[in-house]
Write a protein that binds this DNA or RNA. Structure first.
Lengths: 196, 196, 196, 196
DNA sequence: TATGAATGAGATTTCATTCAT
DNA sequence: AATGAATGAAATCTCATTCAT
């Protein structure tokens, strides 16, 4: 299994840096190789092609994130708290790795449709996690019965994504994590029982 | 003024189709020219370079949309109604021009950072329109005083954008406009007075 | 006859300026037309193609020069004086028209082999004039009998040309005509009887 | 160092042939590559761009020539003999490499001003060599004290250059080297003491 | 395993020339 | 005679991938 060898991760981390520093289209395989301290050809011993590096990058980083977040939210019993934690975890992840933030929010989106479809495949587990929280909230009576889960999920993901992208575009110069609670509250407000 | 000549719009419309059908990187200038029914060189009588076509495309289509929507919402006195109209207009625009939907949601995002910055410039007027609605809602007492406008704007735009992108990625096979009202309600719910 | 119409010379003079100011490869037909104050298409009513402008330019300017010089030197009886006059006339011509100097010494040499062959054709009458002076000098006993005319002609033309080119490359900033007599003397020295 | 690898010289030699046979503007990179027996892209492993091939070509060929000639003339003690050797060496170099003669005398002069400035830079060492001979001749009393070195240098270079160019334009069909001695004598004659 | 030299397909843009008005 | 909008051919250079060592 290639994934267990140190060079596999070495190359992925090099790709994150190379893309963040040079931009998607200027991050040639040779630059990634140089950043990783290996020869160009070595890349192809660990990855099928350039696209494979990018998908693997996303899988490794996002996959790990979803797993951890999934575990984290099990510690909370209320859906509201779970959502709060999810937003916070997401913001914290990218705040702690500025290169990764640039890569996922700006650079990787320049990839072609085919690659983006594969990235979406990876994102599905994240969207599923959101769905679980929403379903749990409906079951527990925190959210209203009539909540359209697909719509709510798109609102959550769209909001988080837009917030992060704006923050990255502004050179990450303000404290993103500080807005996590407020964003969660506003979302939750939209999902709650109608007041009469 | 080049913009008043028929070939200017002819080429822009051809670009939308060529990009939608072939993808961003496969929409060569020669393909756009063929689609427009002009020679390759003619393109350069109306546009400085290829990037200029894409910027102009976005300005013409999105600029027109923002203008019209801006006028439309003046007919509504309540901020809630204005937001409902905004969402509906946006969904309708792209539902009625499937090619344009593909281009704005998927293909144009593959452009380089420089082009995306120019696109964002155009988007600013749209975000400003959203801000106006939100401010109006606060002033009229429809939305709570403490509403964080920047956050609310990101929620609105992020949600709309995510909904459209998902719809386009699913080959536009369901009725997007049908979700407009529901989406607007959920957003509005989040902005309303806290219930006790 | 096109050559008698004012626009013919208007276009040639415009070409000299356009080429001198923009360089050979940057002097597009449209620039020459603009400089001449006519439409692009008008050029083709007076010249077969772009090359034809350049050949005509050279013919008009150099042809006139050779004619005048030819007349001038008839006023001198000694070959040495004729040569002195020839050099002086050549230097004066280009000193008085800096644009023309740049065009003939630098820019027109960037043309392709075919055009340069045609330019050489025009130059032949100039070389013939030099030959006449040399033959006259031999006949009159001013130059030695054994003088190789072809060689002497190449020396004269090569020296003049190299002097002018260097002067143009140095932005015409020194007085070229001032060197005319000295250059002529040195050439004449080489042609004179061997001293014992 | 790229210059020590065999392909560097292989490509330069191919460029000389390709340019001589096709002309400057018809010697596309792909033709040079084919002539060199390498792929188009390989060219760019050894040269920055097409212009770099041409500059390097001139530097290698002319630079080597100046160096060798410089060494050669050290074997002669008299300035007159040194000049004779210089002319002979120059004529011999180009007589032995007809392709190179076409390239330096006709084709490379079609290059743009920027490239020609770089070529002139290389030529400076040649002109310096001529100056050394002239100065030596003055010091040794072979040439007259009052000799204008700049002028004499332009006469030497101009004459040699004109002779070669005419010879190349006439398809190199006569024996250029045979005229070397005669040309040198005529130049020397011009530099010698005035006879009384 | 690792290397890195070599490959070669592919696209934007310019500009001389034409021709309908 | 004059215009100028339209034409369309043509070439440099990049970079993902391979493969002999």
């Amino acid at each position: 299994m290639k994934k267990n060898k140190p060079k596999y991760h070495q190359i992925i981390d090099a790709a994150v840096i190379a893309i963040a520093e040079n931009g998607y289209h200027q991050a040639q395989v040779s630059k990634i190789a140089r950043q990783a301290g290996v020869a160009d050809g070595t890349i192809y011993l660990y990855f099928k092609n350039k696209e494979d590096i990018l998908i693997s990058l996303f899988q490794e980083k996002m996959g790990t994130f979803v797993e951890k977040t999934s575990e984290n939210i099990q510690t909370k019993s209320k859906a509201a708290d779970q959502l709060r934690l999810l937003v916070e975890n997401h913001f914290t992840l990218l705040t702690e790795d500025p290169h990764l933030a640039v890569v996922t929010q700006l650079e990787l989106r320049q990839s072609n449709k085919e690659l983006r479809l594969k990235i979406n495949e990876v994102l599905k587990s994240y969207l599923l996690l959101i769905d679980q929280i929403l379903q749990h909230g409906i079951n527990s009576g925190e959210f209203r019965d009539s909540l359209n889960i697909r719509l709510a999920r798109q609102m959550i993901f769209g909001t988080i994504d837009e917030m992060i992208t704006t923050w990255v575009m502004n050179d990450q110069k303000y404290d993103l994590a500080a807005s996590a609670q407020e964003a969660a509250e506003m979302l939750l407000n939209g999902f709650s029982m109608k007041k009469e």
